[in-house]
């Protein structure tokens, strides 16, 4: 067992976990932040994407221990009180979600993508979503939502 201290969504958190605990389990089971999802076991679907020190990572492919001392943002920490993050708002406005399961990972990936490449066109967005699977939307409205959010955030 090890004690893992992190800052999650601005709050200092700590939990005693087994060494083998993945970051996603630390968040979901120990901190009960269940917005981060697990959709596969081969590190491909991206439902578990969170930000660690400002960068999008797959929380199913990182040990909680590796996140010791890190600043973590999950989908629960994105909105500012009742004010949605522009990416969250755009997903709703453009119907970028259906069942909602891939959505937290999609949104966290999109926020990271806009940070890295503010000026986004459709082919770039599609390519950059390589690490996120969605089975419902056919991606079209996700792409629209990200493009719109990027434009809004740039202005």
């Amino acid at each position: 067992m090890i004690s893992v201290k992190t800052t999650v969504n601005g709050e200092e958190r700590s939990a005693d976990v087994e060494d083998r605990t993945l970051l996603v389990s630390y968040l979901r089971e120990h901190l009960r932040l269940t917005g981060t999802h697990i959709g596969c076991d081969t590190s491909q679907c991206g439902a578990c994407v969170v930000h660690v020190n400002g960068k999008a990572v797959k929380s199913c492919t990182m040990l909680a221990a590796q996140a010791e001392g890190c600043n973590i943002t999950t989908v629960e920490g994105l909105a500012d009180g009742d004010t949605l993050h522009p990416v969250q708002a755009a997903f709703r406005e453009y119907h970028g979600l259906q069942c909602g399961f891939c959505t937290p990972g999609m949104i966290m990936s999109a926020v990271d993508l806009i940070r890295r490449i503010p000026d986004l066109d459709e082919p770039t967005i599609r390519q950059e979503l390589e690490g996120n699977l969605c089975r419902c939307t056919g991606y079209q409205n996700i792409v629209k939502a990200i493009k719109s959010a990027a434009e809004q955030m740039a202005s």
Binding site: D41, T61, L63, Q66
Partner: peptide, 26 residues
């Protein structure tokens, strides 16, 4: 050795590897 873990951890999740120790050099 655990560096980024992007291949090792998926392999371990599939229970295809069972190292006794992971040494984080990340």
């Amino acid at each position: 050795l655990l560096s980024g873990g992007q291949t090792l951890l998926p392999t371990m999740k599939q229970r295809l590897a069972m190292p006794s120790d992971l040494i984080d050099i990340g």
